Simulated scan of single mutants.
Amino acid sequence: MVLAIISTVVHIAFGALLGGFSGGTIGLLVGAVVGLLVGGPFGWAIASARVYGPDARGILLFVVDHTWSLLNTVAGAIYLTVHLIFGHHLDRPTSQQSCRVNVVEGVSPRYATTIGTVCAGSNSGIQRHEDVHIFQARLLGPLYLPLVALNYVLFTIAPVWLLWHDHTNAPINRFTRYFEIGVYPHVWNEAIAYRIQGTPPR
């Protein structure tokens, strides 16, 4: 419960800080409210599912997630809030002391998606792949999301990945496959995760 309260307060403070920079006193108040609206559900989730263990690992990763990797944690909190609004459910057994928040339902039945420390639609067969993304975010902190977005943009407009893509087993023969089979599995964060665990979509 203590970590949940600290997490919520950090989200409120972060929202207030951003709001204050962009809109003075009114912006500060609006930012604090937004921070509460996304930080509250995230705090509830980590308390309800006992996400962070009381051991050194749990405390250390909580600190990392709420300092160096705070931008990723906030993005994950927004992602979690949207899932909860749509009636999706926490996967409490999987989340417990895992230092991540698992949501049962994903954005798409075909894919699991991880943002920050929130992983939606995963299962035991692909969880290690999703955990790589959590590790990447913790390692790179505020650089992670911009680097991922930059790679997506670059590979969309300049598809250099075509040089090493497996055209025989994964042909790019329609528009949607350009993104699903081409851009997506070749961006750096996915390529690393697939190398560690999983087979890229074909």
Rank of each mutant, 00 (worst) to 15 (best):
Leu37Pro: 02
Gly53Leu: 13
Ala112Gly: 12
Thr168Tyr: 10
Ile126Asp: 05
Val64Met: 04
Leu36Pro: 01
Asp55Ser: 11
Val187Trp: 10
Ile12Phe: 05
Val187Thr: 13
His89Met: 00
Ile85Pro: 04
Gly125Pro: 08
Tyr152Asp: 12
Ile46Pro: 04
Ile192Ser: 03
Phe42Gly: 07
Arg50Tyr: 04
Phe21Lys: 13
Leu143His: 13
Ser98Val: 06
Gly27Lys: 04
Tyr194Gly: 05
Ile85Leu: 12
Val51Ala: 14
Leu28Ile: 05
Val153Cys: 07
Leu84Glu: 11
Gly31Asp: 08
Gln97Glu: 12
His11Ser: 13
Ser108Gln: 02
Gly40Phe: 08
Leu139His: 07
Ala193Ser: 05
Tyr178Met: 03
Cys119Pro: 12
Phe62Met: 00
Ala112Arg: 12
Gly182Trp: 01
Ala112Ser: 15
Ile115Arg: 00
Leu147Gln: 10
Gly20Tyr: 07
Phe135Thr: 06
Glu190Val: 01
Ile181Tyr: 14
Asp91Arg: 04
Leu143Pro: 05
Ile196Cys: 01
Leu18Pro: 09
Asn123Val: 00
Leu29Val: 13
Val34Met: 12
Thr199Val: 08
Val34Phe: 08
Asn173Ser: 14
Val132Ile: 09
Pro54Tyr: 05
Ala77Gly: 14
Val34Asn: 01
Gly87His: 07
Trp188Tyr: 10
Val183Thr: 10
Ser69Gln: 03
Val118Ile: 15
Tyr111Phe: 14
Ile157Glu: 05
Ile5Leu: 05
Pro41Glu: 09
